[in-house]
Write a protein that binds this DNA or RNA. Structure first.
Length: 318
DNA sequence: AGCGAGCCCTGCGCGC
DNA sequence: TGCGCGCAGGGCTCGC
């Protein structure tokens, strides 16, 4: 499911319920969801039981709950299909429930944290907190400058106040790869997945395979600005839901799907030029783009790949 | 360095 | 009704 806006929606939903809460019980229904936990399901539960949660923190698509008075945190990654839901303690188990954590919340009293995950690409783990390299708050939701060790290699995301724009632009210019591949590289910039990469590229009128080296600095800055804009707007809408796979902590859908311009829009008219949005396979996934608005630079374009010239559609000057 | 392939998985909707 | 196929918001590791 989840990219930055969806994970942030979950984090913001958890924050008031879990901050200061005591963990009273842990039930692991599928140990495959602990793939990234060093230890067994028993050590996972034993270590959490009785601890207190200090905050709900996020960097990119990673979420963690620091355990007060320790150098440890409960880390969650939602993978493609993970959810974290707040449930009443007497609520029945969700169908695809993998881990259930009982807490006593200062605000809401007894609650269950349900980790639900269809494909089990997501995970939970208890991990060491280590100092960040740049001494700024490690993620959104806390001023703490410690980060889980398994998240330490993840770059800051574009909405992080400590995101180093100059460093990102320099690293992008140094890279010898296609621009979408760069956007999906979580060690370069985090939080961006297939939806928002396609949306930002559409907004910046860039072909997904445009070599990063061919981007002028203004074009790269425009791409970053469009990326921030689309992430911000999606966050305001509570994220993108296509089905019940992505919901917030209360089980509600996000509404950004109604505002998508590229992702999943194949065959529909481009909102700029009216020509049909195309879908093509890329990196074992799909890329959605407007073949007219998002053309490769001439220097790297195969001769036969010129799209049809602007004879019909509206806004033909795009 | 970068990159493609493979792997980790389940479930849903579709066409036959 | 049933089966096979393609599809899905991610990320890690391994070879070349």
């Amino acid at each position: 499911m989840p990219e930055l806006p969806e994970v942030e929606t979950v984090r913001a939903g958890l924050e008031p319920a879990v901050t200061g809460a005591r963990i009273t019980g842990v039930r692991v229904l599928d140990t495959r969801s602990l793939r990234r936990h060093v230890g067994t399901a028993d050590t996972f539960g034993d270590e959490l039981a009785g601890t207190r949660i200090g905050a709900a923190v996020r960097r990119g698509k990673f979420l963690w709950l620091p355990l007060t008075g320790t150098d440890r945190a409960l880390v969650a990654h939602l993978g493609m299909s993970g959810q974290v839901l707040l449930r009443a303690v007497d609520a029945p188990d969700d169908r695809l429930l993998r881990v259930r954590i009982e807490i006593g919340s200062p605000v809401h009293g007894p609650l269950s944290l349900a980790f639900v995950d269809q494909r089990i690409f997501g995970s939970m783990a208890v991990d060491d907190l280590v100092p960040v390299a740049d001494a700024a708050p490690a993620g959104r939701g806390s001023e703490d400058t410690r980060i889980p060790s398994q998240v330490a290699h993840i770059a800051r995301d574009p909405l992080d106040p400590a995101f180093d724009e100059r460093r990102f632009l320099a690293a992008l210019a140094r890279k010898n790869t296609g621009v979408k591949r760069a956007l999906l590289d979580q060690t370069l910039v985090s939080g961006v997945g297939n939806i928002y990469a396609d949306e930002a590229l559409w907004a910046a009128r860039l072909h997904f395979e445009a070599p990063t080296a061919t981007l002028s600095r203004p074009r790269a800055k425009l791409l970053l600005a469009e990326l921030r804009l689309v992430l911000t707007r999606a966050l305001e809408d509570g994220g993108t839901s296509f089905d019940a796979q992505y919901v917030n902590v209360n089980g509600a859908s996000g509404y950004f799907a109604q505002r998508l311009n590229a992702y999943g829009q194949q065959g529909k008219e481009c909102a700029r030029c009216g020509r049909p949005i195309a879908r093509t396979s890329f990196m074992n996934r799909s890329s959605h783009y407007c073949p007219w608005c998002q053309r490769l630079p001439r220097a790297v374009r195969p001769d036969h790949a010129d799209p049809t010239p602007p004879t019909g559609g509206r806004n033909a000057t795009w």
